[in-house]
Amino acid sequence: MASSSTTTGTSSGGSGPYPIQGSGSEKDLQHVMDQRKKKRMISNRESARRSRMRKQKHLDELATQLSQLRKENNQMISSVTITTQHYMNVETENRVLRAQVAELSQQLQSLNEIIAFVNPCVDSGCGFMEEQYGSGTEFVDEFMSNSLSYVYANQAILASADMFMY
């Protein structure tokens, strides 16, 4: 029998338990190289597939996050709009109340002026005879309860919310 040119083992430049090829078996060497190339190609394809899957998953997560952030943004805009409307309503009401305070202050000042005018007359007599009008306090009580109460009880408050709309 003839001896084979192929022996098993590792060579100093070899990379594992592959047969050492002699000069007569270049086809075997080509076959081994093709297998390695095929394995590497399969591995690269699998790695690329995993990379595409990771990228797609990341893209899906970003799309979900974008949707959530848009929803939150719309809610915030709605909240700001409602708060602004509430603020405008309160501001309008505040202006009406300030106008009413000014009006009532003016009415109070007028009443205080009338009282100041009537009280010195009651204290000093002002030429009124006590027999005719009593002690004087009855005159003030009657004057205050009859004449002024009708004037201010029937007077409408002039301030309204429509005055301050712009």
Rank of each mutant, 00 (worst) to 15 (best):
L97P: 00
R95F: 03
T81F: 06
H86N: 09
E72Y: 02
A99I: 03
L104T: 14
T83S: 04
L104P: 08
S78M: 11
T84E: 08
V90D: 01
N89E: 10
N74Q: 12
T84K: 06
A102T: 13
R95K: 12
S79H: 14
A99H: 02
M88Q: 09
Y87S: 01
N112P: 00
Q106M: 13
S110R: 05
A99V: 06
Q107G: 05
E93K: 02
I77P: 06
A102K: 07
Q75W: 08
L108G: 09
V80I: 14
I82G: 05
R95D: 06
V96G: 00
R95I: 08
N74P: 02
N74A: 11
N73D: 10
E103Y: 09
S105H: 12
V80G: 04
Y87K: 01
I82S: 10
T84P: 03
T81D: 05
E113K: 15
L97C: 00
M76I: 15
Q109S: 15
V90S: 02
Q75L: 10
E113M: 15
V80M: 11
A99W: 01
V101F: 12
Q100L: 06
V90W: 02
T84M: 06
E93H: 03
I77L: 15
N73V: 07
A102I: 11
H86C: 06
T83I: 04
T92D: 08
E72R: 00
E103L: 05
S79Q: 15
Q106C: 11
T81N: 04
Q109I: 12
L104R: 13
Q100I: 08
N73G: 05
T83L: 07
T81V: 10
M88A: 07
